Computed example of a mutant assay.
Amino acid sequence: MTSSVPWQERLSAGTEAVQDEVIRWYQETPEGQAYVSTMIWGTFQTEAYATVILGQVVDFLGVPDDVPAGVAKRMQRQQVLYDGEHHYDVVLGEQALYTNIGGPEVMREQIDRILRDIDLPLSSLTLGIIPATAPVDMLPVHAFDLHGDEVHVELVSSGLNVTEPSELDLYRKAFSRPSDAALYGEGAKELLQKARSFWSGARRG
């Protein structure tokens, strides 16, 4: 089964309530997978990065502006990375390290955050980064989060929740393909350091 709720309806009271939903979703599912090719996964985002992202959402959709409250909730959701009771297998595209969200200072801080979290115990986090030129045995797909028996997909106009078992199997397969192309450990750190050097030399735009 696939259900869809338009963002303007879901965010009609602002961003905070949706973040509460996501917190519950994360807390209730101990194992999760996420694939994000062009931006930083929400649970890695710094306060500054998340402020820019949620501000863009509010501006684009014309929903109530409660960005500070929404950002605070997004920061709260990140505690699942450190509680020792959850594990996340995350794959980012290298482009996510270069998509300019908020300018060089925000991006440097964001990459420093990921460099810190990449050393979390493997029982809590497995992080891979797909090099921009790596061959991937999979057609390009949209970002998605897979938790237990549900997949969440964010489209421009709405959020989709997918629960049909056959579709879930395809998402699991879709996650395994870019995972195989990703670099982990020291290889991922080298990509992060390269991006950090880029943003350290970049001028404020």
Score class of each variant (00 low, 15 high):
residue 7 W to F: 10
residue 101 I to C: 09
residue 96 A to E: 06
residue 61 L to M: 06
residue 153 V to H: 06
residue 168 L to Q: 11
residue 92 L to Q: 05
residue 160 L to T: 01
residue 46 T to E: 02
residue 186 E to K: 12
residue 130 I to N: 01
residue 204 R to D: 13
residue 148 G to A: 11
residue 104 P to G: 06
residue 157 S to H: 10
residue 106 V to K: 07
residue 115 L to K: 10
residue 57 V to Y: 05
residue 140 P to N: 07
residue 113 R to M: 13
residue 2 T to R: 14
residue 184 Y to E: 03
residue 12 S to E: 12
residue 78 Q to Y: 00
residue 135 P to V: 12
residue 193 Q to S: 09
residue 156 V to Q: 03
residue 150 E to Y: 03
residue 41 W to N: 08
residue 152 H to R: 15
residue 38 T to M: 10
residue 49 Y to G: 04
residue 106 V to F: 05
residue 60 F to A: 13
residue 13 A to K: 15
residue 1 M to W: 03
residue 12 S to L: 04
residue 3 S to C: 02
residue 139 L to C: 05
residue 164 E to Q: 14
residue 195 A to I: 06
residue 33 Q to A: 09
residue 99 T to N: 13
residue 152 H to S: 15
residue 111 I to N: 00
residue 182 A to V: 07
residue 45 Q to I: 08
residue 24 R to M: 03
residue 158 S to R: 12
residue 125 L to F: 02
residue 79 Q to F: 00
residue 192 L to S: 03
residue 15 T to D: 01
residue 12 S to A: 15
residue 110 Q to Y: 02
residue 4 S to A: 11
residue 16 E to K: 14
residue 98 Y to L: 11
residue 13 A to T: 15
residue 179 S to W: 06
residue 162 V to A: 02
residue 137 D to L: 14
residue 187 G to E: 07
residue 127 L to F: 02
residue 35 Y to C: 02
residue 50 A to P: 00
residue 127 L to H: 01
residue 198 F to K: 08
residue 28 E to T: 12
residue 30 P to V: 07
residue 52 V to C: 06
residue 86 H to L: 05
residue 146 L to I: 11
residue 125 L to P: 02
residue 86 H to E: 04
residue 24 R to T: 11
residue 20 D to Q: 13
residue 185 G to S: 04
residue 12 S to K: 14
residue 204 R to A: 13
residue 81 L to A: 06
residue 122 L to F: 08
residue 123 S to W: 01
residue 44 F to H: 11
residue 56 Q to V: 08
residue 145 D to Y: 12
residue 128 G to C: 04
residue 35 Y to A: 01
residue 60 F to Q: 12
residue 108 R to P: 04
residue 137 D to M: 13
residue 109 E to L: 12
